[in-house]
């Protein structure tokens, strides 16, 4: 029904033929900086990275303030301890950590005498059975969509996230899905239109995540915040002590695809 709202909003905007958009100045307060932790561990490789930063004032010409003096540790439920090393610009790295599905991991960050903790478990990866490109003409404009088909495992809650890198740019969050309305069915996820528009000839790298519920909730809250929301709020974090961000351990696969009028698919 999120889609319905989007359609309505589109109608509303297009209905007012006179509607116009202007850049404006809004005088926003400077809030006290808050700790932000982005810990997105995956089974893509043994190289894992965690980012720690602080919020910055809205009008600053940088997106975040890196924090390099934190102590970052991840423990697995099997008792292994991984200590992450700072590599600058707020990044902490561990070069040899293997993420296993169905195993629980605990994050511990110590910073300025405060401890931030979180626990996450990676679900099993849900394999796709096919992937392709479709083109749709809406109001005389061509739109490309990437479609991924798969059998959703029945009787359990499944959550999916996609990150996309276009023509070698860094990966960026694209969208999340849950199986609330299609548990156990043959499901098609369609990417494009929302958040991203593909152009003919684009070379796309796509990461498909199977992820835990609280990480899905985080992104779903982010995704459903739009200018029509009555009371936007910070997405709910699964990290303790008031840190923003999230700790997620996911199973991921990466796909390559080139946007062409004929289907072109490689993995």
């Amino acid at each position: 029904m999120q889609t319905i709202f989007k359609v309505l909003l589109a109608v509303l905007i297009s209905f007012s033929l006179h509607s116009c958009e202007d850049k404006i100045d809004v005088n926003l307060n400077d809030a006290d900086p808050r700790v932000v932790i982005e810990a997105d561990l995956t089974n893509l490789s043994r190289n894992q990275e965690i980012k720690i930063s602080r919020t910055v004032a809205f009008d600053e010409n940088r997106a975040f303030e890196p924090v390099d003096q934190a102590e970052v540790i991840v423990r697995s439920s099997t008792g292994r301890v991984y200590t992450f090393e700072s590599i600058g610009n707020g990044k902490y790295r561990h070069a040899n950590m293997m993420v296993n599905a169905m195993q629980e991991y605990t994050l511990l960050v110590r910073l300025d005498g405060k401890e931030y903790t979180a626990t996450s478990r990676a679900p099993r990866f849900v394999e796709i059975d096919s992937m392709g490109i479709t083109k749709e003409t809406i109001l005389n404009d061509d739109y490309y969509f990437i479609n991924l088909s798969f059998d959703d495992p029945g009787g359990e809650d499944n959550y999916y996230k996609y990150s996309i890198s276009t023509n070698g740019e860094p990966f960026k969050f694209n969208t999340v899905f849950s199986d609330k309305f299609n548990d156990g069915l043959h499901v098609k996820h369609q990417l494009g239109g929302r958040n991203i528009e593909f152009e003919n000839g684009d070379s796309i790298n796509l990461r498909r995540y199977s992820l835990a519920k609280d990480v899905y909730t985080y992104w779903s809250e982010y995704q459903s915040t739009n200018p029509g929301s009555a009371s936007p709020a910070n997405p709910k974090s699964n990290i303790s002590n008031g840190a923003l961000g999230y700790f997620g351990v996911s199973t991921v696969k990466e796909y390559k695809i080139t946007i062409q009028d004929e289907d072109g698919l490689s993995q």
Partner: peptide, 18 residues
């Protein structure tokens, strides 16, 4: 409700609401 700050997650600028 407007943001009073910002931060970055997964390459995306997020707004910080207080």
């Amino acid at each position: 409700t407007f943001p009073s700050g910002k931060y970055q997650i997964d390459g995306t600028t997020m707004f910080y609401y207080t």
